[in-house]
Amino acid sequence: MSSVKSSQDLTDDLCDALLTPADREAMLRLLRDLCTPAEVHSLAERWHVARLLTTGMSYREIHEATGVSTTTVVRVARFLNQEPHQGYRDAIAALEARDADR
């Protein structure tokens, strides 16, 4: 068995691993093993910006409220609104649906 994997195989493996935690605490342990504290913080900031963008806050308001760079706000907005992946949108919709069921 070859230990050399394609970029897609590595990404698929990572996605499978990210699907394994059963709760928030398990996910946090996995993130802490996978990422540096700065990387976890950066991911959390991007997620926070995505949520704020869906409330209608302006880029400048988000920057002033969070301290996140306007470059990051613009990047998150681009992925939220223009890129075809729609990962932010899917996750936000799933959380909204979950919260509506509670």
Rank of each mutant, 00 (worst) to 15 (best):
D99C: 03
R24K: 14
D16Y: 15
R46H: 05
M27Y: 13
T71L: 11
D90A: 14
T71K: 13
L53F: 04
A44Q: 12
E83W: 06
A65W: 02
T36A: 13
R51P: 02
T55M: 04
R89K: 12
S6Q: 09
W47A: 05
R32T: 10
A17D: 08
V73S: 01
G87K: 01
F79T: 01
D16W: 15
D16P: 03
V4N: 13
R32H: 11
G67C: 02
T36V: 05
E83V: 01
G67L: 01
T54K: 08
Q86I: 00
S3V: 10
I62L: 00
L52V: 05
T71D: 11
S42E: 15
R78A: 05
D33K: 06
F79Y: 12
A38Q: 15
L14A: 10
D101E: 15
L19H: 05
V76G: 00
R60L: 08
W47Q: 03
A100M: 02
F79Q: 06
L43D: 00
A97V: 02
S3Y: 14
V68M: 01
H48D: 10
R60V: 07
C35M: 09
M57L: 14
S69L: 02
Q8V: 11
S58N: 06
S42N: 09
A97L: 12
T70Y: 08
D13Q: 13
R78I: 02
A100D: 13
A77V: 00
R78N: 09
P21I: 04
L31I: 04
D9T: 05
R24A: 12
H48I: 02
A77N: 08
T36M: 13
E64D: 15
D90P: 00
Y59N: 10
M57S: 08
R32D: 15
S6V: 03
L19V: 06
R32Q: 14
S7Y: 12
C35W: 09
L95A: 07
L19T: 04
L95I: 04
L18Q: 07
E61P: 01
F79V: 02
H48G: 04
E64T: 10
D33W: 11
A22P: 02
R78G: 07
T72P: 00
H63E: 13
A100I: 02
R102N: 09
T70L: 09
W47D: 00
A65Q: 13
L18D: 07
D9G: 03
G87L: 01
F79C: 04
C15M: 13
A26C: 04
D16M: 11
R60T: 10
I92T: 03
C15T: 05
E64C: 03
V4F: 14
M27Q: 12
